[in-house]
Amino acid sequence: MTRHAALFLVVSILTSLSLPASAQNAACSKKLTIAFFDWQPYHYRDENGTPTGLDIELLRETFGAAGCAFELKVMPWKRTLLAIKFGTIDGSLGASRMVEREQYAWFTRPYRRETMVMFMRLKDLEKKNVMSIADVVSGKNRIGILLGSWYGDEFAALYKADPKLRKYILQTPEYEVLFTWLVKDRVDVVFNDLFNGIHILKKMNALDRVGVHPALLNDDYIHFILSKLTVPRTTVEAIDKAIEDFQSTEDYTTILHKYVPPEQLTYMPLQ
């Protein structure tokens, strides 16, 4: 070996030792642009304009462990999907896996579950002793739902089979209005996402008056979604491994408990 070759080898070794793990394994070769929109408590901007929320915390933990630097960009959801499709951004969070999206996007390992549940006043939960979605729907309960939302196949089938059910449905485009109706006895049941509902009830100081029915409306996996045009498969694999490792730690559960009380998580399997 020549003196020049030996010197080059030493410099190369020292350079590789000084690089972060992410650069050494080349899992993420660039900073990723990740889009989000305001959807509390998953991803939103606080009073200082800083991105925060459950999904943002999980993003930081898992992408950080995978060695993937990222920057966050506010963008409406429909525009986000188009941007991922055409590669003008790298990805987003809070995505459900769909066949049409798989044509242009990678989906990571699920990092949480999205659970649609039925919120009821505690006194009614104790009194009515209803144990199924059909019981709630057929019991002439006034049901508050968000305009345009999906609440699972079972409710959709019950709604289609019984035209009379429509007169018991009250709809609004505002989540907070649903729970105001429930607390003020304008509806008997509110259909909503578990974490979002708990978040709103916390702000209303109404968790001591409202509970969650044990029957699930819908239960789905939630993923990070990444553009196939700009993100290599090796990056997705590194993020998948980071998610898997993080979900087995106490820190993962601690983050979940910041947003939903431990007793409510019995309605949402973590794995």
Rank of each mutant, 00 (worst) to 15 (best):
Y111D: 01
N141C: 06
P173C: 06
K167S: 11
K85L: 07
K258P: 06
L59K: 04
N218S: 14
P41W: 07
L17H: 10
G64N: 01
T249P: 11
L146Y: 01
I145Y: 01
K123E: 15
L125T: 08
G91K: 08
L7E: 09
S248R: 15
V99Q: 12
K31A: 02
V11C: 10
L182N: 08
S138H: 08
F246M: 06
V236M: 02
K167M: 07
L226F: 14
I225V: 14
A65R: 10
D219A: 09
T253F: 11
D90P: 08
L256N: 10
G53T: 04
E237L: 04
C28I: 02
L216R: 14
D90F: 07
G91E: 07
H223M: 06
D38M: 09
L72T: 04
A157N: 13
D46W: 04
V74I: 10
E250G: 14
D245V: 05
T62W: 00
E100Q: 13
H257R: 15
R112K: 15
I200Y: 02
F155S: 01
K228E: 08
T80W: 10
S92T: 15
G197R: 04
R233D: 10
T249K: 14
G49K: 12
A21P: 00
I198G: 06
E250R: 14
F107Y: 15
S248W: 09
I225F: 01
L54R: 09
H213V: 02
K203S: 12
D124I: 05
I84Y: 10
K78P: 00
H257Y: 15
F70G: 00
L270I: 13
G211N: 03
Q40D: 03
P163D: 01
Y252T: 05
A6E: 13
D153H: 12
A156Q: 13
L265R: 13
M268E: 15
M116I: 11
D245M: 04
A35W: 02
I222K: 01
T108K: 01
